[in-house]
């Protein structure tokens, strides 16, 4: 079943703000097995010029995935989630996320296209502080395997 093209440009807002904490950053750094002290030790992070520990570059995927979840479960999109794989991922940073940040995510369906028998859907999530400062944009391209098989080209 083809994705509903009418939803190109639709915007989703995170239902509630995400609070970045030292504990979550340490847990994530442990999970990616990255011992860098700026992710763990406030004194080290301050010595490096940051206000608090910073998050690893791929940490914003936590917000990016939440946002993608909002979009792909939109019934109007008519997307078969069981056929979805992660195609591309890109981040554009204004600065690293850091402990104490409280951020919201605004996600736009920025592209829907057909490639071979698959459909590609791109979600662009702007992650900003409550004060409106841009921190990072997460661009997530999902491949819907076989999505175009019965759909229009």
């Amino acid at each position: 079943m083809a994705i509903n093209r009418d939803l190109l440009g639709r915007v989703y807002r995170s239902p509630e703000p995400y609070e970045v904490t030292r504990g979550k950053i340490r847990e994530f750094a442990d999970a990616i097995q990255d011992p860098n002290p700026v992710y763990r030790d406030t004194a080290e992070a301050k010595a490096a010029g940051y206000a608090d520990v910073i998050a690893p570059p791929t940490f914003p995927i936590i917000m990016g995935m939440e946002a993608a979840g909002q979009a792909v479960t939109d019934p109007e999109l008519r997307l078969d989630f069981s056929m979805v794989v992660h195609g591309d991922q890109r981040f554009r940073y204004s600065r690293p996320l850091q402990a104490g940040d409280v951020v919201t995510t605004v996600t736009t369906i920025s592209d829907i296209k057909v490639l071979g028998g698959n459909e590609l859907i791109t979600l662009e999530s702007e992650i900003s502080t409550l004060a409106g400062e841009h921190v990072v944009t997460s661009v997530n391209m999902l491949v819907v395997r076989g999505g175009a098989a019965q759909g229009e080209k």
Partner: peptide, 11 residues
């Protein structure tokens, strides 16, 4: 790590 301006991959 804060020196990264952009980072993108294709799986």
């Amino acid at each position: 790590p804060g020196a990264i301006v952009e980072y993108g991959v294709r799986f």
